[in-house]
Design a protein around this nucleic acid. Sequence first.
DNA 1: TCCCGTACCACGTCGCATGA
DNA 2: TCATGCGACGTGGTACGGGA
Length: 271
Amino acid sequence: MDSLDEMPSHRKGDYTEVVVVAELKRRGISVSKPIGDNERYDLVVEANQKFWTLQVKTGSYRDDGINFRGVSQHTNASGNTYKSYDGDVDFFAVYCHELGSMYLVPEEEVGSNMFLRTAEPSQRHRNINWADVYEFDRNWPPDETTGSSDDVSTVVDMLEERGITIHKPVTRETYQLLLEADDGTRYRTAVEHGTINGGRIRFDPKCAVAGPDAIDLVLVYSTELDTLHLVRRDEYNTAISLRVAAPEQWNRDINWAEEYEFDARWPDDLE
DNA sequence: TCCCGTACCACGTCGCATGA
DNA sequence: TCATGCGACGTGGTACGGGA
């Protein structure tokens, strides 16, 4: 039996696939395999009555992180060609033999390569991908209603358009972003997905569980309206909804969404 | 200077088609 | 039947650019 290092690359990939299947079965997850080698995905798994396609990748451990590739490479008469899995798979199942750990990474978050960091770097970097965030058991089963990572990236884009300095926490925190005002003040900020219901933008303030000292601001992004609202954490106790349409019965305590629009509040309305 | 992402080359295995 | 070419898959390694 070859050691892992001596194993040819193709066989190593097969071995990883078997290990991943064993790990999935150990968790009681239903696993199917396409017949033949003509599919772009390696496995089909079932969760929440939905099927997800997985592409298994071997993660190589080096420099305090796990590296894997997000493209397939083919060699033909004209040389090497590269093909991304864009839309062909739902997730990459990455197994690192050195650490004996498995990770679940959404396909859309992977470029041609991805580096999952397991230890603090000597110098912090904005785009660090922390391995523990992608740990399989933390991300399984997939939440098909989730849009949180998309919401965060959308909000980040909106903030960058406004020239706002953004920091991402390098460790797991109750907040998702650290916004820096021109005077240097930093605000611990949670991003929430707002849905319109009954003429109001509602969101699930998960951060309320962590207590009022855990964050400073909540940014509520509504995909339906493509709007961004800013709510200070001290402006609500456990929940707040922002009214976008007049109610049938007038109430003087109505929180009008327009009064919470991000551009109307940042940064002067934070004190 | 460090770190991540991209791009590229190299090499191995496997299955299929084709021609001697 | 067997050798060969081709194209699919895989990983290992490295150079480079951009951003912090």
